[in-house]
Design a protein around this nucleic acid. Structure first.
Lengths: 344, 344
DNA sequence: TTGAAAGCGCTACCAA
DNA sequence: TTGGTAGCGCTTTCAA
């Protein structure tokens, strides 16, 4: 697809050069300073209505667009909030959160930019981000180390906020402790009388950040109760699920926490196909409270996560930018509550 | 959540200023020129090994990170490829595509940046993008008009590529013609003897870009055949689906194309709950070929879309950047093929 | 092999 | 009310 014969890098026609504020000034018959005053409506200076009009007119005619790099170079700072673009496919929950956050930061007059960091690990990525001199950096996940934070701060970032399982020296942290998710799920299963509990651990790489703590929380929930937790590696494919379902009788489990709703759907289907009755033989619970859980039969029990609102996070960023001297804040922002439906 | 008392914007301790190449030069006891030569290992100039070491050492010690804005200001161009961050929640298919594209462009040494454009309509957004002086702009959807393309090109973008239903004057176009999806789906239903065919149209705003052409294609597929197509507005909630299922007998439909797999799952569940047998009474087909379709019972028929590979698109961008004079290319990149399973 | 200096586009200070 | 101009950080000639 998209097959086009290679055209040699031709001597392209000299592209009509990009208009600058000097061009606008020339056309309007004023100085560059005046152009700047008019286009930014600098309140400290009063410019006659006639001049204003001439400048605007000239700018429009030339299709003038200010040069952000030049501006922020001069100003010594930008309003750019940078975050890495997620490298792994990430759920609808997270997407919605990012959207809301972008909107909220936009309201506060920041420009949000997702940097397509490819195959740069941790602190190398931080360098690439630092080159853009963002005023704040928002990093989901656990990739950023203290070194990275330092690079960013030394290159002028007034706020570094991590959003994940742990906190990093020098950075604000929004702790999303997925332990609570696993804990809530398994505590629920235990409360309903289940004692031999499986916990699905996705084989997909990149999900360990979430799956590990969920498993840990699951274990912690039944510590010293005599109940047993078994980790169940599972790839997100039917074959893998069928295989797991095949050895189900041998496993002797009476309940399973399936990492999230999607893996739950996958496994539940395989179990049902293998003749396992849900919840009679095995109770199933997912996580993330996706729509699809409600559409399954039996309806899927799940763990609902209370994420912070994008607005709250935007305000934290704004606060941090305005007062970079303040102590890094650490907040735990992941409330987890079980939504009990029919599968457990 | 995240409730912290407002700290007044305190006079923050003067942040230790960001090191520049001049600082590195000073510390290394060389000129700024030399620093630049060393750090970019300019091949045109030969620098003594001793000097190199001193410069690197100094840079490391200061935590020097070059200033991208200053660099590209001087250079007169950047290697930034800009795309708007999706404003609406978008499916896993698209996400995977974006990831692959980012990776491929990264390989070609471009920096991909997703701009969080909030609530700027069409050509206003284009202005915001133009301020960053990207070397190329990639716009999914139908938001960009000829004006927008013009603004971008006049401000130095060497390539503008749209990725959606139509092509825009002056821009390269990757035509994703969703008509073919609707056409394939409904032609399939017709071939299987269905004559009264419903087509789900999501009520969610922002999806019209896709749903309209899918509906049009559906209509076209049975034009002049005597078969009938009925548009069925549906919101992505159980209630809405239940309502629709409730009036199903009155509609007298023997088949439905459900926009995509997720809406198909929603509707199929509601229909089954209402006692409609699938596919006996009503055949159902979705689109996008998501995993979940295979997990439904009956297994969901769907329309698989052949998207271009991220690598192909990255190469198109690269070609366009290197030869901005070339005629804009237009490619149709959406192949649609029916995956027949049990629901139809 | 290294340094001095011009200049990318912009804003803000100081003069006029 | 407007203009001249310095300088943000960087690269790249041209000279030494």
């Amino acid at each position: 697809m998209v097959q086009i014969p290679n055209t040699p890098p031709s001597a392209s026609p000299a592209p009509r050069s990009v208009p600058t504020s000097a061009d606008v000034a020339r056309l309007a018959g004023v100085s560059r300073a005046t152009v700047s005053y008019v286009l930014n409506n600098t309140s400290a200076v009063r410019i006659s209505e006639a001049t204003r009009r001439r400048v605007h007119e000239a700018a429009r005619e030339l299709g003038y667009v200010p040069h952000a790099a030049a501006r922020s170079l001069r100003a010594g700072h930008s309003r750019m909030v940078l975050m890495p673009a997620p490298a792994i496919p990430v759920g609808p929950l997270y997407n919605a959160f990012i959207n809301e956050l972008q909107w909220a930061l936009g309201r506060l007059d920041y420009t949000v930019v997702q940097h397509g960091t490819v195959a740069l690990r941790g602190d190398e990525a931080a360098r690439a981000w630092a080159e853009l001199r963002p005023v704040a950096v928002l990093v989901p996940g656990a990739g950023l180390g203290p070194q990275g934070v330092d690079v960013l701060k030394r290159s002028g970032a007034r706020a570094v906020v991590t959003l994940g399982p742990g906190s990093v020296e020098g950075a604000h942290a929004l702790l999303m402790d997925h332990t609570t998710v696993g804990h809530a799920a398994v505590a629920h299963l235990y409360a309903r009388g289940r004692r031999r509990i499986g916990v699905v651990v996705p084989e997909e790489t990149g999900l360990d950040t979430f799956s590990r703590p969920r498993l840990d929380g699951a274990r912690a929930a039944v510590q010293d109760t005599g109940a047993e937790v078994t980790a169940l590696p599972l790839a997100y494919e039917e074959r893998s699920a069928a295989r797991l379902a095949g050895r189900w009788p041998g496993l002797g489990l009476d309940a399973v926490f399936a990492y999230n709703d999607e893996y739950a759907m996958l496994l539940m289907r395989a179990l049902q196909d293998a003749g396992v009755r849900i919840p009679a033989d095995t109770a199933v619970i997912g996580a993330d409270d996706l729509m699809l859980g409600r559409l399954l039969r039996p309806r899927l029990s799940t763990v609902h996560m209370d994420l912070p609102s994008g607005r709250d996070l935007a305000e934290l960023v704004d606060r941090a930018v305005r007062d970079p001297g303040a102590e890094p804040e650490t907040h735990t922002i992941l409330g987890a509550s079980v939504v009990h439906r029919e599968s457990s």
